[in-house]
Design a protein around this nucleic acid. Structure first.
Lengths: 314, 314
DNA sequence: TTTCGGCGTGTTAACGGTAACATGTTTTTT
DNA sequence: AAAAAACATGTTACCGTTAACACGCCGAAA
């Protein structure tokens, strides 16, 4: 591998000048700069990150902490991971994936997903910048990035209203996490704003649980009912329960939430609120780098997309 | 962060002795070794990987190359990624995720998934060890790790035979990749060994395509037919098509292949051949490290598990 | 008793890069 | 025209670790 000295030799300057061309180009005269740049190009020089790390007291490693059980990990992590890794690589950083919080690691920052409330104290105590993926509770002011959950269910509810469904119910999650509360909120607010009566049920995040719920409920579900679901998993179960009578989308409308993978494999294809993963990945990485440069960037809620497919009338 | 000098000072020895205790313990006297170890423990010393990298001319970075389109990435990547990353971390390595082949990167090895035949020349030309995830074609002798695809469909076919299904068909993939050929082979060989007439259909790897195929085929599918599917996606479509008549598992049996995620969200729950991802991750990492130590380790085919659930009789 | 070999430990230099300072040259100021 | 300031480039030392070599000590061989 070529190093600074090789470039320096070829350009007839010292190592330091080459280093300056890269890091403080304004301090080098135009002619020398041009010569050095062409030498860099000619020999294909790439800085050695390890040497930089050593002298700069940095690690160029960002940790992605997955605190959820690996087995239950949602497929969307793969997409998020790939995007984040790519963005970090572009900035000369490397990704380290870990499944438990540990202080004193040689890392420069942490991106956390799948955390629960009781993980937050330990995360706050870390000596490096941290960004959460997912809305943090009000009593912690840790920076986070999330889809705008409230807006998401609001859009879902509005879509069902516009599509002419009469009664609209919400199937939410039994877990008491901020994002779940926000999603419920988006439904409730929209219903109130439209002077409609809201009705909330909750289930565990499994398609079978949702299927069972709807099965038990079916006598209470008149034709022309819309169902806003807190997740695609729930929506999948709801679709299965309602589709037995072939009532979708004419008799019943169903909208999911997340828009990764599950929505692709349902039949009929699921109308859903899609998380903008590319933007989320960008925001997570940007947020971390702003913190690394001593800035501050609090919470970021990103607008979701409505993907209208075949479980609702258009 | 504490460094060698801190430990050395505390143990009243030189930095070199501490380094030796870590890397060549047999060259240090027992008493000094004990003193150094307790000093290391007391100050919580962890070696600086960057400094080691610099002096050892290594990078301590392994690249995970995802050559498949990010959007179509299967959920199982998440699991595999997490496992691989954890294993690498344990060995002091970091994972770098990338989506395109590029020479001259500062990495020590590459794990590749989602490759196509025309990627292989470029991979072979890399100057660092490479392991493929997924069976490689015969004309390349690159090391690979994969589930034993042939054994997988053999087990699926045997299970259907034992469960008493009479006619057994195979729904395979239109793509002409080694793993797909192997899966077909496992079915064909088992049928031949049991003196049964085999019947192979192929579709694209989409549940809707499979659903359509079975729908078109239904007059040719007598009661008591078993279906071996090349993937869980296909199996999902087959189940949807056959379950309309509530014929599963009594009238029809269905077995999938992959056992990640999709099988969890089907109803009824899918009988499937599960890839042993934990072992695959281990094998991929081990294979790479054997190569890094100048060893050689060719192809590794790992035994799959049969997960019997509700789309077949037991 | 002197010499040699081995053992345990310390010293030096190097990996590739950068900050801080030193030096030499040009430009500005008075 | 001399002094000061600004600019461009080079020199030195250091980040944390390790290989290679140097050194001193002890026991075995002569």
């Amino acid at each position: 591998m070529v190093n600074l000295a090789d470039v320096a030799h070829r350009a007839h300057v010292s190592k330091m000048t080459v280093s300056r061309v890269i890091n403080h180009p304004e301090k080098v005269s135009e002619e020398v700069k041009a010569a050095v740049l062409s030498a860099i190009d000619a020999v294909g020089y790439q800085p050695n990150r390890m040497a930089q790390a050593l002298v700069n007291h940095q690690n160029y490693v960002i940790e992605f902490l997955v605190l959820e059980d690996v087995v239950t990990v949602e497929p969307n992590y793969a997409i998020l991971l790939l995007q984040i890794a790519d963005l970090l690589n572009q900035r000369g950083y490397t990704l380290e994936i870990s499944t438990h919080i540990k202080a004193n690691k040689r890392i420069d920052g942490v991106i956390v997903s799948g955390w629960r409330a009781d993980d937050l104290p330990a995360l706050e105590a870390l000596s490096v910048p941290v960004v959460l993926y997912g809305e943090s509770p009000l009593d912690y002011d840790m920076p986070f990035v999330d889809v705008d959950n409230r807006q998401g269910t609001a859009l879902a509810t509005q879509h069902l209203i516009r599509a002419g469904y009469d009664k609209i119910i919400y199937v939410g999650l039994t877990v008491d996490l901020p994002f779940a509360q926000e999603r419920e909120r988006g439904y409730l607010d929209t219903m109130a704003a439209n002077h409609k009566v809201s009705r909330v049920y909750t289930v565990d995040n499994h398609s079978r649980a949702a299927e069972q719920l709807i099965f038990n409920l079916q006598t209470h579900l008149p034709a022309n009912t819309g169902v806003v679901c807190a997740t695609d998993r729930i929506a999948l179960g709801v679709v299965r329960a309602l589709n037995r009578q072939n009532g979708i989308p004419e008799k019943y409308g169903v909208v999911g939430f997340d828009g990764v993978f599950i929505d692709q494999i349902t039949s009929p294809q699921l109308t859903t609120i899609r998380q903008p993963f590319a933007q989320i990945a960008h925001a997570l990485v940007d947020n971390l780098f702003v913190q690394l440069h001593n800035g501050e960037l609090g919470m970021q809620r990103l607008a979701p997309d409505v993907i209208i497919r075949d479980t609702t009338r258009h």
